[in-house]
Design a protein around this nucleic acid. Structure first.
Length: 435
DNA sequence: TCTGGGGTCCTAGGACCC
DNA sequence: TCTGGGGTCCTAGGACCC
């Protein structure tokens, strides 16, 4: 069984911890530069304030409403959600943080010794503890699959009768819940897919779950949708990803106002690059590509528009701030054109892989010995020693090539396969680069 | 006048290799 | 002159999530 613990209107709830007088009143939290609404209290939702709505429109449309408005304060939200997470860690057998405000919990058979009903009590108790010690309300859904758990948490949020925890543990409850759940609300079914499904007469999650497997495959030929269909039917198939490291890291901002000169842009981009490098080091990885993008204000159709994106391959995968900033600066220089009014820029790190001593050892070793193909055995020994393996996989190729070039290929393949099996996120190009 | 900031996965098609 | 079959990697684009 899976549980999902979800902070209600997370950012608003965080602000209310220090402003209890705002309970029961409409509250919104804004994005960077106070641009858009990113969080709404239930009262604000009832006023018709949409997620992502530009703040100036809100002010125009509801001039007479008293709405508490906050600029976002990510340090505060990070701090409070960390406290929520700490309580989950104490109470749950195993967990995985899915986002800043959501956390999956895994239950094994031991935790179910007094039946699934025990899980309902567990959830209610967890709610009370978090509410009391952190001050943030959460909703908890528990079910045999993650998608059904998300469904359950929706009902926990919607109906006070569930006392913040909804359990889907029987076929009857599953059917009942899915019939009341519209297709567009299902986890994994977004705007596009729900529009297509509705056009085909599929209005609820139940309608979708009832379709045959062949219908799903013939209609979408899409593995993600197929998985969602399976999950709604109680088959657990969304993988658990507790140890996931980021495969790309991005820092970007819209400017407050517009920027025309490259020096100001360079300052911004250098800051974003430095921030990216920080995130990279925090997760203990290195990047091999730095990319920069640049936009004019896309909302200002009266002004000339320009956008561009440039990748800069690093000579060697690194987590060094100075190298990453330099590369980003170069990329920016390549795409900057004088005369435009720029509104947004960002830095993306790609080709991210583990910062393992294996890579460095291979690099050093190759530099010295790679030309001497007679040393193949020694090289293999070395790889085995470093990796703690008995043998290395040589791929499908045989030692049939006569000349040194052939052996070099075999060797390169051996390294590639070995690397790949140990470091699934490493890209072929990174490995070739090491050679 | 004012319009956010992160991520993930999958697929198709082209370039290239043997 | 005839022109197969198997495979990898990369990119762009499209969908989704919070």
């Amino acid at each position: 069984m899976y549980g999902i613990v979800d902070c209600d209107n997370c950012y608003v709830s965080c602000e209310r911890v220090f402003r209890p007088d705002l309970n029961g009143k409409p509250v919104v939290v804004l994005s960077n530069n106070d641009g858009c609404v990113v969080a709404r209290s239930n009262e604000a939702k009832k006023l018709g304030i949409k997620a992502g709505m530009p703040y100036y429109q809100l002010a125009q449309q509801l001039p007479n409403e008293k709405i508490a408005v906050f600029s976002s304060n990510y340090e505060l939200y990070g701090e409070l959600t960390a406290r929520v997470l700490e309580i989950i860690r104490q109470e749950a057998p195993a967990y995985f943080r899915y986002s800043i405000d959501e956390c999956f919990v895994y239950f094994n058979s031991f935790d179910m010794h007094d039946g699934s009903t025990g899980l309902k009590g567990w959830g209610e108790q967890l709610y009370r503890r978090i509410r009391k010690s952190v001050g943030i309300p959460v909703s908890i859904g528990i079910a045999p699959t993650k998608t059904l758990a998300k469904t359950a948490s929706h009902f926990a949020k919607k109906y006070p009768g569930y006392r913040h925890c909804c359990l889907i543990d029987t076929e009857e409850k599953r059917r009942k819940a899915l019939k009341l759940y519209s297709i567009g609300e299902v986890w994994g079914i977004g705007r596009r897919y729900s529009a297509r499904l509705e056009a085909l007469g599929v209005k609820t999650a139940y309608d979708f779950a009832q379709k045959s497997e062949s219908w799903v495959n013939a209609t979408f030929n899409n593995i993600v949708i197929h998985r969602t269909w399976q999950e709604l039917n109680g088959e657990d198939c969304v993988p658990n990803e507790e140890l996931a490291k980021k495969k790309s890291i991005c820092t970007s901002r819209s400017f407050n106002g517009m920027v025309t000169d490259i020096d100001t842009l360079k300052t911004h981009v250098a800051n974003y690059a430095a921030r990216c490098a920080e995130k990279l080091r925090q997760q203990g990885t290195v990047a091999s590509v730095v990319a920069v993008f640049l936009y004019t204000n896309t909302f200002r159709q009266d002004l000339p528009q320009y956008w561009n994106f440039r990748e800069q391959r690093l000579p060697m995968a690194t987590d060094s701030t100075i190298d990453i900033v330099k590369a980003a600066s170069q990329a920016l220089q390549d795409i900057y054109i004088q005369g435009y009014h720029y509104k947004k820029a960002g830095v993306i790190l790609m080709g991210i892989g583990p910062n393992s001593p294996v890579q460095l050892d291979l690099f050093d070793f190759n530099a010295e010995h790679f030309q001497k193909m007679k040393r193949l055995d020694a090289i293999i020994d070395r790889i085995n020693k470093v990796n703690g393996t008995e043998t290395i996989v040589l791929g499908s190729q045989q030692y049939s090539q006569k000349d040194g070039k052939g052996k070099a290929d075999v060797f390169a393949n051996a390294i590639k396969h070995d690397f790949r099996s140990k470091n699934p996120t490493t890209r072929w190009t990174d490995i070739i680069h090491l050679k």
